[in-house]
Computed example of a mutant assay.
Amino acid sequence: MTKCPLCNKDNHCAINEGKKAETCWCMKVSISKELLQSIGHRNQCICYECLEGDRNIIVKDEGK
């Protein structure tokens, strides 16, 4: 289990679970630059719950 750097909860990373990166939930969203900058240069995934709290989250349209 990998943890979110913001709340320290499980971030449900597909890669960490041995799955392909393209199957991860994070591939279906765009994360704001500001939120990414808030965690600095750490190579850690933010959890979906923390992303939902960020007003700048954009869910990608899978049809495009």
Rank of each mutant, 00 (worst) to 15 (best):
E22S: 12
E22T: 13
E22R: 15
C24R: 13
C24Y: 00
C24F: 08
W25K: 10
W25C: 11
W25M: 10
W25R: 09
W25L: 11
C26Y: 06
C26G: 09
C26W: 07
C26I: 14
C26R: 11
C26H: 13
C26E: 11
M27G: 04
M27I: 03
M27C: 07
M27K: 11
K28T: 13
K28D: 14
K28N: 12
V29R: 04
V29T: 10
S30F: 10
S30K: 14
I31P: 08
I31Y: 01
S32E: 09
S32L: 09
S32I: 03
K33A: 07
K33H: 06
K33M: 06
E34R: 04
L35V: 00
L36D: 05
L36N: 15
L36A: 04
L36Y: 05
L36H: 07
Q37M: 11
Q37V: 08
Q37G: 04
S38E: 11
S38F: 02
S38Q: 10
S38I: 00
I39T: 02
I39L: 02
I39Y: 00
I39S: 01
G40Q: 06
G40S: 08
G40L: 03
G40P: 08
H41V: 05
H41T: 14
H41G: 15
H41Y: 07
H41K: 14
R42W: 07
R42D: 13
R42V: 14
N43S: 12
N43E: 12
N43Y: 11
Q44A: 11
Q44F: 00
Q44D: 15
C45H: 01
C45P: 08
C45Q: 00
C45N: 01
C45G: 01
I46R: 02
I46K: 02
I46E: 01
I46S: 06
I46T: 05
I46V: 12
C47L: 02
Y48N: 12
Y48L: 12
Y48E: 14
Y48S: 14
E49D: 12
E49K: 07
E49A: 12
E49R: 08
E49V: 11
C50M: 03
C50Y: 03
C50E: 03
C50A: 05
L51P: 06
L51D: 07
L51A: 03
L51E: 01
L51K: 06
E52K: 15
E52Q: 13
E52S: 04
E52A: 07
E52T: 08
E52M: 15
E52L: 15
G53F: 02
G53V: 00
G53K: 13
G53T: 00
D54I: 02
D54Y: 01
D54K: 04
D54N: 07
D54L: 00
R55A: 14
R55K: 13
